[in-house]
């Protein structure tokens, strides 16, 4: 049986993690092809409903990547995102999907290597957890090298 290839959405702040993704590309770094990057104006624009919506659509994992503490372009957006992620983790635990499928990471714009490391770490974590019970295409994804379909 082919190995399960998780489908992960990474909501990335444009001032840090998204720029770090660009840097990772410029540095020709190899990282997991399982992540789908969504550019956000700030990690603080993430909403509880948006995260749950992603899980409802069948993604196996979600992470939000924002600036280091004290570095937010909008001062406290990353602090708000951390609190929201904690609240949604609690909801995921309560409804049985599991809070481990969701995480927050600090990825500064200058750290392309950290972007690649986080993508690999999260992919490995979700691979260990297995496909989300809401992912109807989990079996199909395995053959598509990283799950090219949504």
């Amino acid at each position: 049986m082919p190995e399960f290839e998780p489908k992960i959405v990474a909501f990335c702040c444009r001032y840090c993690a998204y720029t770090a993704a660009d840097l990772a590309g410029s540095m020709r770094l190899q990282y997991s092809p399982n992540i789908r990057v969504v550019e956000m104006p700030c990690s603080g624009t993430i909403e509880h409903g948006l995260i749950l919506n992603a899980f409802e659509k069948g993604v196996d994992g979600v992470y939000i990547a924002g600036c280091n503490l004290g570095d937010c372009h909008f001062l406290k957006g990353n602090v708000r995102a951390i609190k929201r992620v904690a609240a949604v983790k609690k909801i995921l635990d309560e409804i049985g999907l599991g809070g481990q499928r969701l995480e927050f990471f600090h990825i500064p714009a200058s750290e392309g290597t950290k972007f690649a490391k986080v993508a690999n770490e999260m992919t490995e974590r979700i691979r260990q957890l297995g496909p989300s019970p809401l992912n109807k295409n989990a079996a199909g994804n395995a053959q598509k090298e990283g799950g090219q379909t949504v």
Binding site: H48, F55, E56, I91, G96, P133
Partner: peptide
């Protein structure tokens, strides 16, 4: 309201 509906939809699908 959207968050609660979404959470309960997921819970029920898992069940």
């Amino acid at each position: 309201t959207d968050v609660l509906a979404s959470a309960i939809r997921i819970k029920r699908t898992l069940e």
